[in-house]
Simulated scan of single mutants.
Amino acid sequence: MRLGELARAIGVAFDGEDGEIEGIGTLKHATAKQLSFLENPKYLKDLAATKAAAVLVSPKYADAVPEGTVALVDEEPYLKLAMASAFFAPEPMRSEGKEPAIGEGSVVAEGVAFGKDVTVGRNVTIMPGCYIGDDVTIGDGTLIHPNVTIYHGCTIGARCIIHAGTVIGSDGYGFAHTKEGKHVKLHQLGNVVVEDDVEIGANCAIDRGTIDSTVIKEGAKLDNLVHVAHNCEIGEYSLITGQVGLSGSTKLGRNVVMGGQSGTAGHLEIGPFATIAARGGVTKSIEGGRVYAGFPLMEHKKWLRLNAMLSRLLEKKN
């Protein structure tokens, strides 16, 4: 779409150089033919360096938009982004394209459904009931158990194991809210990238990125019933046990261990070689190389002392 046409469609005043807009990008990665946005002042440093053609921005940050980038100023930039995303959302299922290219030695069960332009490597096994969407790539030696769904545009590495019932690439939980309390869908335009030697347990949900990718790095192992929200990054060789939930844009360093039913708030970082004990609640970024527990989260030794003190206090009252 032309930028001026897009601005009119979402109800934003436009006064600048018109041009072709081919999609939406983050401030850090947007090209000169993409629209971006700023909602959180945490990303002002990315705004200063952005190459985006235009940026949706609130009035208080309009002056921070760099020269050469059109400022689309609005009181509700995130809501306008959600409206704009609808124009760039891919078709849920294409009718045109190539049939799947399946590598030598691969075994595909009857009843597996493929989208268009799928690439399957050598010695891959795909069991019954799976759906592999448009433009998916699966690396050599990967094993996909029954009833796995991989949405369009996702990439699965080599020698991965994905257990039954898991969904990779479903939409992240992204909505903008009007002043009247209605919820406007922010169409999820990114994908999921699963690197080599990753194992994902049964009935996990790995959301696609809003704009960029959700990434599970090499050698990570996920247990059953894990939820990874949009734009998360799970570091190399991390261990994520059952019923863990990661909120959007959580970044885990390498070799992070998360115990059962632990979880994170969004937009935070967990340092490499950190361990979160079962049911730990991470609400802010934490350093690596330590063991944490509890909610609010604290170092494990401190949490043990706290609980010992509470136990003694109760004994005294009795």
Rank of each mutant, 00 (worst) to 15 (best):
A277T: 08
R254D: 14
T125L: 11
G235T: 13
I168E: 05
E199L: 03
A48I: 03
T149F: 02
A202E: 10
C204Q: 13
I162L: 14
S58L: 06
A277M: 11
A113R: 13
G23F: 09
G181S: 02
L79C: 06
L297T: 01
A293D: 01
G121F: 09
H177I: 10
A89W: 05
P59D: 12
G245D: 06
G281C: 05
R312Q: 15
G266D: 05
Y78A: 13
P77M: 07
K98F: 00
Q243S: 13
F37Y: 15
D134R: 06
L189W: 12
K316T: 12
L252I: 10
I276D: 05
E104R: 14
E195A: 07
L143Q: 12
Y131L: 08
G294N: 01
V215Y: 05
V244T: 08
V291P: 00
D140Y: 02
T149K: 00
T264D: 04
E75K: 15
G19L: 00
M93G: 09
Y131S: 13
N147C: 09
W303Y: 06
R122Q: 08
G4C: 07
T214E: 11
E218I: 08
A101T: 12
A49M: 10
A158D: 08
T142G: 08
F88C: 10
N191S: 15
G245Q: 07
V112N: 03
V120W: 10
A49N: 09
Y43D: 12
G294D: 00
D207Y: 01
Y151S: 02
D46M: 12
V73N: 09
E5R: 12
A293G: 05
G190E: 11
G165E: 11
D117P: 01
I200K: 03
V118C: 05
K60L: 07
S249K: 00
T166S: 15
P296A: 04
I240T: 10
E76L: 06
G115K: 06
K185C: 04
P146D: 01
V112Q: 02
G260Q: 05
A113G: 04
G111C: 11
T155W: 02
A113V: 14
S58T: 12
E39D: 14
K33F: 02
A82G: 11
E91I: 11
E269P: 03
E299Y: 01
V70A: 09
